[in-house]
Amino acid sequence: MNQATDLIAGAPTVFMWVASFFAIFFALIVFVSSNPISCAVALMGTLFSTAALYFSLGNFFVGAIQILVYAGAIAVLFVFIVMLLDLKPQKLKNLPGRLPHFLFSGLVAGLLALFLFRTIDLVPKATEDSSASILSATQYAQYFLSQYQVPFQAAGLLVFGAILGAIVLARGHLGKKEHS
């Protein structure tokens, strides 16, 4: 199904609109809700909608990776942790105390959004040739193992480090006596 539609220049399809709406909506929930579980699920929702956006952009490979890694692993991990630690929803006790903090961060985020939106028109439309920009997985693979070989190895090393870290944290914890 390698349609040749160029998905960047054309007007966004309905599917895109829906997916982006969901993405923003779920992100809002993550921000607003005080209950960690709903945040986790909302995060899962955003991840799915972004995956959907990737698919709509034609980059299936990244979409699949997004679902597999993000939704499948990270979001599950979050939900797992939230459940394991049975975190109670955070009642906003000292709201007045944290109000300046809220306002300040809101101000900063707003400022950031403003700046970013100013640059929105800099996004280049699309290069002239609207040939299929959908690359197959093999082409991506060639890229990784030729041009980006070193970063790829580095990423491997990073993950290896992360595994070791996780083991140490788990192991370390077991070694010590239990307390509170």
Binding site: M1, N2, F60, F61, I67, L68, A71, S136, A137
Partner: peptide, 14 residues
């Protein structure tokens, strides 16, 4: 999809 197998695995993890 060109990444059919991967997609399958991804959805499976849901």
């Amino acid at each position: 999809m060109s990444v059919g197998l991967l997609f399958l695995l991804a959805i499976n993890s849901m």
